[in-house]
Write a protein that binds this DNA or RNA. Structure first.
Length: 609
RNA sequence: GCCGGAGUAGCUCAGUCGGUAGAGCAGUGCUUUCGUAAAGCAAAGGUCGGGAGUUCAAUUCUCCCCUCCGGCUCCA
C-alpha cells in the first residue's frame, strides 16, 4: 500500500472539513466519498434531497464554504479513529445511503470498518454547539486541524460526477479543492495553471490563426486556416518522407464504405453508437469510416500476395469520422473528424517482433525530432479475471499476441507498463502517451499486433514452400492524428514552432514605407529559396510592427531601413532573442536554410515552468 | 450522453432590475515616414447564439434547441 505523506493527510482532512461546511448549509445533503487527488481533494454530495428553495450548489458559493472551512481549521478540530463492528456501523449510518452501501461492501470483503470522529474539544465560542461528526473513512488523518495552513488551500470548482464512477448511477455534485503546505506553494501552483492556460492550443489557435470551428459545420469538425494547414502539410510531408525511407508505401482510400466491410471486421453492430449514421443510397447503407484498417485490408486482398512482398507496409494519412459524445469534445484534442498518421504492416509471423521493434524505433525518431522528451508506452492486455464477451478470438491467439508484444517492447529496451483490461477487442495494444514541457500528457497513438483481423478478412500470402499462410498485422500511428498532434505541439512549443514547422518563417519589416520597395526585393529572394515569408507593409511605427511580429511568434524578423538598403543587408531579429545585427542576405539564407533542413528546435520557449 | 456555468462587434470585455446597446484592440480612410514590443485623427462596424412563448414592447422574463467552458463517463 502506498504510504500517505503529511500533505496528503492534510488534503484528506480538508475534504472532511468541506463536508462539514456543506452540511451546515445543506443539512439534507447526503455524503458520497471525499478522497485525495493530485494537489488536492474533492468531496461528492447528493443534493437531491435539498429543497428547491435552497437553490442548490453553485460555484459562487465556494468562497463562502471556503471561509467556513478556514474557521473550522482555526477551531482546532480533532480527528479520532475508531474501529466499529458491522451492526454498529449499520446503525450509525442508517440514514446515509452511500456510506451504507460502502459498509456492506467492506463487510462482505471481511475488512475492518473504520470511522473517524471529527470534533471540537471545547464548546465553540459564542454558540451553544459543539461540532461532532462521524465519518466512515479509511483514513489516515492529521491529529488536529491546527496542522493545516489556512492560507494554503482553495476550493476550485463544482462539477458533476457519477456515484462510483459509473454512468448508470446517480450523478452527484463534486467540489474540488487544492491544498499545499505553504501559501507560496499554492500561489506557485495557481501561477502554473495560468501558464497552462496561456499555452492552451484553443487560445493560441485563435491568436495565431491556425484553425477554427463553425456552428454551421458542426461540433468537433475543425476547419484548418492557411497557417494551420501549413503546419499540417509540413508535418505530413516529413512523415511521408520518413515512411518512404523506412520502406513504407502510401495508399489512399475513400472516406465511406458499404456496411458490409464493418460486418466483416466485426465493428457492426458493437460500435454502431460511435459511427455517424449511415447514408442510404439505392437501398445500400454506407458509413463514414471510423478507422482505416478495413479499407487497407481490402487493398492487401486485392490480389494474391507472396512472402517476397512482406513485410508489406501500407501507410495512409487517412481521414476518419467518429461520433464522439458531445461532452467529450475538446478543441483539437478530441474531435469527430480527424486525419490519422496510419499504417498497416502485413508481416510473416516469424518477423513480427522484429517489425514491431522497428515501429518503436520510428516513434523514438519522431519524438526526438519534435523535442518530445517524455513519452511512455502502456501495453493494454486482456483482463483475464473478467473475460466477458468484450474480446474476440481464442486464448491461444491472445497468448501469442501478448507474448510477442511484450517480447518486442522488451527487446526495444523501452520502459513500458502493463494495463490489464486495456486491450482492444481484437488484440493487445501499446498506447503511446506523450508529455509536453508543461507536463500535460496525451495519448497520441497506438501500436497493435493483430492476429485476429487476418482471420476475419481471410488474409493470406504464399510462403517459401508455396503454402498459403496467414500474416500478422501491425497497426501503427506514431504521430496519432494531425489534429491531436498539432494541438499538442501548439502547447508544447507555446505557439513558437520550430522554424521548419512555422507557418511564416520570416517577416520582413521595413522601418517606414520608404523601404517597402527594398522589402519586396528581399521577399522575392526568400520566395526563390522556398522560405515562407511575408512583408509587413502596414503604415505603422517600427515598434508596432515588431510587436506584431513577436506576437505572431515569427522565428525571424528582417528589419529594413536606409542602412540595410545601402549595404544590401538585412537587420536580423530572432524570436525571443531580439536584435542580432546586420547580415548579408546570402549569410542569412544559409543560416535559415540550415536551421530548416536540420529541423532545429526552438530553444527559447522549451522550458519547464 | 450526464451535472454545473456561459454565449453582447473579428478579438477581449462592459451594460440593460423589459423601452432594440458601449469601450479597448484589430480592420478601413487620412495625417505622419519612423531604427528594435502599442504614433495621431476620423468614419465604420451588432437581428445581443437560434427558435417559440409571455408582454403595448424581449438582448433582458419563460421554454426548447445549438455551440463553447469546467468536470464525470466514454475513447475500436
Amino acid at each position: 500500500m502506498k504510504k500517505i505523506n503529511e500533505i496528503e493527510k492534510i488534503r484528506h482532512s480538508l475534504s472532511h472539513l468541506l463536508a462539514i461546511a456543506v452540511l451546515e448549509i445543506f443539512p439534507n445533503a447526503k455524503l458520497g466519498i471525499g478522497p485525495i487527488i493530485e494537489n488536492g481533494f474533492y468531496y461528492d454530495f447528493d443534493l437531491s434531497a435539498v429543497a428547491e428553495s435552497e437553490g442548490g450548489l453553485t460555484p459562487d458559493q465556494l468562497p463562502k464554504i471556503e471561509k467556513r472551512m478556514r474557521e473550522l481549521v482555526k477551531m482546532g478540530l480533532l480527528f479520532q479513529k475508531e474501529i466499529i463492528d458491522f451492526a454498529k456501523a449499520k446503525k450509525t449510518f442508517k440514514n446515509k445511503p452511500y456510506k451504507l452501501e460502502l459498509i456492506k461492501e467492506i463487510n462482505k470483503n471481511k475488512q475492518k470498518i473504520t470511522v473517524y470522529k471529527t470534533f471540537a474539544k471545547y464548546q465553540i465560542p459564542n454558540t451553544k454547539y459543539q461540532i461532532q461528526f462521524t465519518y466512515l473513512c479509511a483514513g489516515p488523518h492529521i491529529k488536529s486541524t491546527k496542522e493545516i495552513n489556512p492560507a494554503a488551500f482553495k476550493l476550485t470548482k463544482v462539477a458533476g460526477a457519477y456515484w462510483r464512477g459509473d454512468e448508470k448511477n446517480k450523478m452527484l455534485t463534486r467540489i474540488y479543492g487544492i491544498a499545499f503546505n505553504s501559501e507560496k506553494e499554492l500561489k506557485e501552483h495557481i501561477e502554473m495553471l495560468e501558464e497552462v492556460e496561456k499555452r492552451d492550443h484553443r487560445k493560441l489557435g485563435k491568436e495565431l490563426d491556425l484553425f477554427t470551428f463553425s456552428d454551421e459545420v458542426g461540433a468537433g469538425l475543425p476547419l484548418w486556416l492557411p497557417k494551420g494547414e501549413t503546419i499540417r502539410h509540413e508535418l505530413e510531408k516529413w512523415a511521408r518522407e520518413t515512411e518512404k525511407k523506412w520502406g513504407y508505401q502510401h495508399i489512399a482510400t475513400p472516406h465511406i464504405t458499404k456496411s458490409k466491410l464493418y460486418e466483416i471486421s466485426g465493428h457492426l453492430p458493437y460500435y454502431k453508437d460511435d459511427l455517424y449514421s449511415p447514408i442510404n443510397i439505392e437501398g445500400e447503407e454506407y458509413y463514414l469510416k471510423p478507422m482505416n484498417c478495413p479499407h487497407t485490408h481490402m487493398i492487401y486482398n486485392a490480389r494474391l500476395r507472396s512472402y517476397r512482398e512482406l513485410p508489406l507496409r501500407l501507410a495512409e494519412y487517412g481521414q476518419v469520422y467518429r461520433f464522439e459524445k458531445s461532452g467529450t469534445l475538446h478543441g483539437l484534442m478530441r474531435v469527430r473528424g480527424f486525419c490519422q498518421n496510419d499504417a498497416h504492416i502485413y508481416v510473416q509471423p516469424e518477423k513480427a517482433v522484429e517489425e514491431f521493434i522497428n515501429v518503436i524505433k520510428m516513434h523514438e525518431y519522431y519524438y526526438k525530432t519534435l523535442g518530445i522528451q517524455n513519452w511512455r508506452v502502456v501495453l493494454g492486455t486482456r483482463d483475464r479475471k473478467n473475460l466477458r464477451k468484450k474480446y474476440h478470438g481464442n486464448d491461444a491467439m491472445w497468448d501469442m499476441a501478448e507474448k510477442l508484444s511484450k517480447e518486442a517492447l522488451e527487446k526495444s529496451s523501452i520502459k513500458y507498463e502493463i494495463e490489464e483490461g486495456g486491450a482492444a477487442h481484437y488484440g493487445p495494444k501499446a498506447d503511446i502517451y506523450i508529455q509536453s514541457v508543461i507536463g500535460k500528457e496525451y495519448a497520441i497513438g497506438t501500436d497493435q499486433l493483430d492476429l485476429y483481423m487476418p482471420q476475419r478478412f481471410n488474409l493470406s500470402y504464399i510462403d517459401k514452400n508455396g503454402k498459403e499462410t496467414m500474416p500478422y498485422i501491425i497497426h501503427r500511428a506514431p504521430l496519432g492524428s494531425h489534429e491531436r498532434m498539432i494541438g499538442f505541439l501548439i502547447e508544447h512549443y507555446a505557439g513558437a514552432f520550430p522554424i521548419w514547422l512555422s507557418p511564416i518563417q520570416v517577416r520582413i519589416v521595413p522601418i517606414s514605407e520608404k523601404f517597402n520597395k527594398y522589402g519586396i526585393e528581399i521577399l522575392e529572394k526568400l520566395k526563390q529559396f522556398d522560405i515562407r515569408a511575408e512583408l509587413d507593409d502596414n503604415n505603422e511605427t517600427l515598434g508596432k510592427k515588431i510587436r506584431e511580429g513577436e506576437k505572431q511568434k515569427t522565428p525571424y524578423l528582417l528589419i529594413l531601413g536606409g542602412r540595410e538598403e545601402e549595404n544590401k543587408t538585412v537587420g536580423v531579429r530572432q524570436r525571443g532573442k531580439g536584435d542580432m545585427g546586420e547580415m548579408k542576405m546570402v549569410e542569412f539564407l544559409e543560416k535559415i536554410k540550415n536551421e530548416i533542413n536540420n529541423k532545429d528546435l526552438p530553444k527559447e520557449n522549451n522550458k519547464k515552468l
